[in-house]
Design a protein around this nucleic acid. Sequence first.
DNA 1: CGGCTCGTACGATAAGCATCGTAGTACGGG
DNA 2: CCCGTACTACGATGCTTATCGTACGAGCCG
Lengths: 117, 117
Amino acid sequence: MTSTAVSSRDLPHPTRGEIRLEGVLHALSDPLRLQIVRELAAVGDELSCSHFDLPVTKSTTTHHFRVLRESGVIQQIYRGTAKMNGLRKDDLDGLFPGLLDALLDAAARQAVRPGGA
Amino acid sequence: MTSTAVSSRDLPHPTRGEIRLEGVLHALSDPLRLQIVRELAAVGDELSCSHFDLPVTKSTTTHHFRVLRESGVIQQIYRGTAKMNGLRKDDLDGLFPGLLDALLDAAARQAVRPGGA
DNA sequence: CGGCTCGTACGATAAGCATCGTAGTACGGG
DNA sequence: CCCGTACTACGATGCTTATCGTACGAGCCG
C-alpha cells in the first residue's frame, strides 16, 4: 500500500497557514534551538533527536523539539523507536521568502565572530 | 556648534559587536515590538515614544522600548522632553546582511494574510 | 518473554517577562 | 517659579518558560 503509516503515534503540527512569524522568531531566539535548526539545515536531511548532543537532559531536549514543532519550524515523525526531525523549509520559504536563509546566514556569521559561539 | 550634546541624560546601548542574533529575534518575537519596528522602518526616520498608540500603559511601553534598545534593534536619544527612536539599520545590515529586510518583508506578508493581524 | 533504547508525561522549581499603578524626574513654557 | 508634558523607576502580580528528576510507554532484538 501507498500509505505512509510509519507509526501509530503521530504528532500535532501547525498547518502552513497557522505558522506565525512571532512564533518562529521566539522559537529561534533560544541558542539551543537555533543550534538545532542550523544543524538540520546543514545536513539538509532528517535527523533523530538522539543525534544531537545537547548540554541538557533528555526531558529538556524533548521540550525544545516540541517548541520547534509547534511553532512550525520543524516537522517530526516517528520511525520505529527513533523520532526524526526535518526542517519545514518549503513551508517557511513559501510563507516568508528569504527569511530562513537570512536567519541561517546571520547565525553563521555570528558563529565566526570573535567570541561568537 | 557641531556637537550633538542633545541632553545630559544618555541611554546605554550595545555596541555593534555586542548585538546578538538571539537577542534581536527575542525582541522581535513580541507582536507589539515587531509592530514598533515595522512602523519605524516604514517612516525611515526617528519617532518619539508618544507617537505610537499602543494598547498598553506608558510603563509597559517604556519596557518594550528598552528591550528593543538593549537588544540593539533601535537607538534612543533624548531630544528635549521627547525620546526619539530610530532603527539601527546600518548596524543590523552590517552584522546580518539581508536579515532586517527579510524580517520586515515576512511581517508585511503575514499582515496581509487572511486574519493576519 | 525480558530487557534495552528512545523518547514522553508529569510534577516541581526557579527564573524570566508582560503588565499594571503609583510616585518621581527632566525639560520646556507661561 | 510653577505647571504641564514626556518619560522613568520601582514594586507587585500573574503567566510563561527552561530546567530537572522520576516514572512510564513504544518499539526492537535476543
